[in-house]
Design a protein around this nucleic acid. Structure first.
Lengths: 238, 238
DNA sequence: TGCGCGTTTTGACATTCGTCAACGCCCGGG
DNA sequence: CCCGGGCGTTGACGAATGTCAAAACGCGCA
């Protein structure tokens, strides 16, 4: 919840303070924003937002990884996005959200009621601009993922996925300008990897073992991946 | 190009004036915007923007239909979006565009240099807000298309596609509050339908004839579709 | 250390969709 | 009116991926 008075706010100590959409707000603005938001811990597997529900809240991710999913009535699931620290989640300026948001790892978020946030955003063009830039970038990423879903085969999907994970998880890493991660812990189960790539769990598993047998990657444990031959992975990604 | 002086501008006669992001601008603002933009006709098949090129221009669609595509080096193509009248195309606030934009029909657009537009937008929060709302809506649509690409089979894809076309093309139609179109002309060739759905042209063709044989749709000509049994189509869409 | 359960892997088989090839239809030009 | 070319359709076949089932693994816990 953070202190109040004397300009103290939990934003002061926020680790994503300079990367989230709040970056660029001055202390006064930050204080008003802080007044309408609150920290919340989410445990792995817990839902924050439900598909087709009224859009009641939006949030910044402070720590952890969350999935955005859509489902069919008969239970098929597609992961349509993944949110990392400093990412913004939820659907501002709209009545319903088109995707569920579920924590993949224990996570910490900074939540706002959508109404409060909408009002605040409309009064702060700089914040809206940050949100616009972020949304445009997310749309770009989403479109390139459509290419993967519609036109790539299982091998290309897995290779592309591993390269993207390696990039995305490096950004979160502590070492400065570390480049893509060579070894990392997947925040996804095999089923979740399948749900990202539009495959079945069996196909994912077979592709992983194939890449392992061909010494392109190593799998030290279920959740860990080490990239042994990045250039091979790049050419497999197509 | 439209007249100048005395506040006259081509915006005055623009058919998408009240639906595009320019809606809500006052006359003065419209005049400055008009000063940095110009009308341009694009013939069917012509490109307006190239994937991975520097993002040099953005535009409003006035008339016609355009496709947004991404391609792999080996020539596979995925249509990642379709732009209709009043839609905004191009990548503001970014160095490169992630998709090509090609006219499917003869089209008319209102183009701006990206630099001019970026500068103008940053000075007009109301315009940026409209653009944000539009981008958020487009992201929603794109995500629900990911579900289709990743998890639906050929029949479901075709049914979903036909229903979406029927909705989207109705909006453009002249009759007020007409509801979804029962009969319409596809702006896509069979190959382009395949590129939207992540299928091959042969699979698309077979699904079309199957639906025709089952009296769910009729195909009066190559480019025309008539929906005979909408509820059947809805249940096939899954 | 050993047990038990959920996850992952592996195998055998089925199905869908893609590939390749031939044919047919429509439309425009001579 | 007829021809030609592009686009669309149809058929036969094969490969990639999904499905179902069983075994193996690994992790927490007793």
């Amino acid at each position: 919840m953070g202190g109040s008075g004397k300009g103290m706010s939990s934003c002061d100590t926020c680790v994503v303070r300079n990367r989230a959409i709040c970056a660029g707000l001055n202390n006064l603005e930050l204080e008003t924003l802080n007044a309408i938001g609150r920290r919340r811990n989410v445990t792995a597997g817990e839902s924050l937002i439900w598909e087709d529900d009224d859009s009641l809240l939006v949030a910044n991710v402070i720590e952890g990884v969350l999935k955005l999913t859509t489902s069919t009535e008969d239970g098929r699931e597609q992961i349509v996005g993944v949110a990392y620290p400093s990412d913004f989640i939820g659907r501002p300026f709209g009545q319903t959200s088109s995707a569920s948001v579920v924590a993949l790892t224990d996570a910490r978020v900074c939540v706002f009621s959508r109404n409060d946030f909408d009002r605040y955003a409309r009064e702060h063009p700089e914040l809206e601009h940050k949100l616009l830039e972020r949304t445009l970038a997310e749309l770009d990423r989403t479109r390139s993922w459509m290419m993967l879903l519609g036109r790539k085969n299982a091998t290309e999907k897995i290779a592309t996925f591993l390269l993207e994970m390696s990039d995305r998880l490096a950004e979160t890493g502590c070492s400065p300008v570390s480049g893509p991660a060579r070894r990392f812990a997947l925040p996804f189960s095999r089923q979740q990897v399948a749900d990202v790539l539009g495959l079945t769990i069996e196909t994912v598993s077979r592709q992983f073992t194939r890449l392992k047998n061909e010494r392109v990657i190593d799998l030290p444990s279920r959740r860990e991946v080490e990239i042994l031959d990045r250039s091979a992975l790049i050419s497999l990604a197509g």
